[in-house]
């Protein structure tokens, strides 16, 4: 058994976008992304809105057919043919707890669906027992099994989504902004739950979030994306202490620190201008239009992600 559970190689996801009557342009939502995740590991994925985080998660699970590249799970290549089987072991918790659960289904049916799809229970009583066990695991009151999703608060709905993802005993879960909609205290509960489940069941996570403090807390390593590409990747503590890529530096400087004295003495490095349209990408390095170190070289070719030692990868000519 190797120490790689999920291996993503040169993943590309282009969407055709109509720009005129007959013209279609490829929107490069994910462009040549590679990384791997070990069993029981958490990889954090951060970056500006629209940079392709959700798309990476969805492409790994073949919710979109990737335009290019390969994904290996436990050494086996994920294809359209075997994805149904694989999906038992690879699950996703979706960004929005309000719209991702069908409000007309009971909690029992929502959590039971993957059990039925993968035929994991031989009898009705076994199915019921498993559902109650799952509800208990995520801290939901088993008495509420017959209630409808819309009767729960945001934090509780998020737990329902997680119980559902856990139903088929996956080894890997893509968590797409699982705590963004929650209040800080409930956020802490849900994060603790993710960590406990990881300890107990050895699940690996791809953890996508806006809140960099939360990502730092839960992740062993963090990957930073900008316009469809990973620009930096390293151990969580390392990237926070020694960010290299100018985009990562500005991203970290923008994190609001919950401490008035630190917050007031700190200088935010605000980026000039807006993110370029993914349909009209600049030549060379996509970040150069907002980068204060950019040189001619940056316009000519795109820097590749290279190891700077200790597993710290950076894609920049200047840093």
């Amino acid at each position: 058994m190797s120490d790689v559970l999920v291996d993503v190689k040169n993943l590309k996801q282009y969407f055709p976008v109509k720009t005129g009557f007959f013209k279609t342009l490829p929107l490069k939502a994910v462009d040549d992304v590679s990384f791997s995740i070990a069993p029981g590991e958490t990889l954090g994925l951060v970056g500006e809105s629209g940079c392709g985080k959700t798309t990476v998660g969805r492409s790994i699970l073949h919710l979109y057919k990737p335009t290019g590249g390969e994904v290996f799970f436990e050494g086996e290549k994920v294809t359209a043919d075997n994805i149904q089987m694989m999906r038992r072991k690879m699950q996703m918790v979706f960004q929005d707890p309000y719209s991702s659960l069908d409000p007309r289904m009971t909690v029992e049916d929502i959590i039971g669906e993957p059990l039925d799809v993968h035929k994991l229970c031989s009898s009705r009583s076994e199915r019921r027992e498993r559902i109650l066990y799952l509800m208990e695991t995520v801290g939901l009151n088993a008495e509420h099994a017959r209630r409808y999703a819309h009767e729960f608060s945001g934090g509780q709905r998020q737990r329902i989504g997680i119980a559902r993802a856990l139903a088929a005993e996956p080894k890997f879960i893509v968590c797409d902004e699982p705590v963004s909609a929650l209040d800080v205290s409930i956020q802490a509960q849900v994060i603790n739950m993710f960590e406990d489940l990881q300890e107990k069941l050895g699940i690996a996570y791809l953890f996508i979030a806006h809140d960099l403090l939360v990502v730092h807390h839960i992740s062993r390593r963090i990957a930073v994306m900008y316009l469809g590409k990973i620009v930096e990747m390293a151990e969580a503590d390392e990237i926070n202490a020694h960010p290299q890529h100018p985009y990562t530096v500005s991203l970290l400087s923008a994190v609001p620190i919950p401490d008035p004295d630190i917050a007031r003495s700190r200088k935010r490095i605000l980026l000039e201008g807006d993110v370029p349209s993914p349909l009209k990408m600049p030549s060379g390095c996509a970040f150069r239009t907002r980068c204060r170190y950019a040189t001619e070289k940056c316009a000519e070719s795109c820097p590749s992600l290279t190891d700077r030692g200790n597993g710290h990868f950076v894609a920049c000519f200047n840093q």
């Binding site: 205290s185 802490a188 603790n192």
Partner: peptide
């Protein structure tokens, strides 16, 4: 309780303490 629930910038390894 609210202040305890946020991740501690200086010590990311400690468990969060929800209310």
């Amino acid at each position: 309780g609210l202040l305890r629930s946020i991740p501690n910038v200086n010590n990311m390894k400690t468990k969060l303490v929800p209310i």
